[in-house]
């Protein structure tokens, strides 16, 4: 009985510490300015199809201060790798030396997959996301909605919770979303440091979001 009580006590204490740390990590994000100390390492979650096109539009305008760039794509995605290489090579021509890698992880959610099986495959994707994020240790994660974002952002938060590194989470909701957030958007809205939407109707519903007009 006593052992059980101690175990319960330890469990509650750890959970409480975890929640407090999570709260601190999320709340203090905006004070964090990695650019003051030099180049900003970025983990770019490319996802697939339209998501990749949109995120590369955002990357087009980021200066060479955002180096190196680690792109994450789903392992079932063939098109994105090509698009990313074409993009990075054209950047190289324009002067800045290209420093990028492409990493593959299992897709956490195929389109139309049910919620319960999504949960299982997201956990599976987390197994790959944790080592990846802990190895790369980016200054920020940039993502825009594919399911792969969630496990990667969880891993990024964990780095902060453990006090190893604060990783900024920058989320840009897809231009397709006018009235409602995507499932990924809903999950990451409370967890991200900068949450961008591209339509004023979403800004009105989500006061924490940042609206700069259409940005892709």
């Amino acid at each position: 009985m006593a052992v059980l009580l101690v175990a319960a006590y330890v469990f509650i204490t750890i959970s409480l510490l975890f929640v407090i740390r999570l709260y601190t990590v999320v709340k203090t994000g905006q004070k964090h300015r990695p650019g003051d100390r030099g180049p900003v390492a970025v983990l770019v979650v490319a996802g697939s199809g339209g998501h990749t096109t949109e995120i590369l539009r955002l990357m087009e305008c980021l200066s060479s201060a955002y180096t190196p760039r680690h792109y994450v794509i789903a392992d079932t995605d063939r098109m994105s790798e090509e698009k990313i290489c074409t993009f990075e090579n054209s950047k190289q021509h324009s002067g800045s030396r290209s420093q990028f890698t492409i990493c593959r992880i299992p897709r956490s959610r195929e389109v139309h997959q049910s919620w319960s099986s999504s949960a299982v495959s997201t956990l599976n994707a987390l197994r790959y996301s944790l080592p990846l994020v802990f190895r790369v240790r980016p200054d920020m994660v940039l993502c825009n909605g594919p399911g792969t974002c969630v496990p990667l952002c969880v891993a990024a938060l964990l780095l902060g919770i453990l006090g190893m590194k604060k990783v900024l989470i920058v989320y840009v909701e897809s231009i397709c979303r006018v009235q409602t957030l995507s499932l990924t958007g809903k999950i990451l809205y409370p967890l991200s440091d900068y949450f961008f939407v591209q339509w004023s109707s979403l800004r009105d519903k989500y006061p924490k979001s940042i609206f700069l007009g259409r940005i892709v």
Partner: peptide
Amino acid sequence: LPGQPKNFADFLDRVLGVQ
């Protein structure tokens, strides 16, 4: 009119302290 990714980049530069 096309979207303006430059606005996103400028915003990020400012809040992240990128020179």
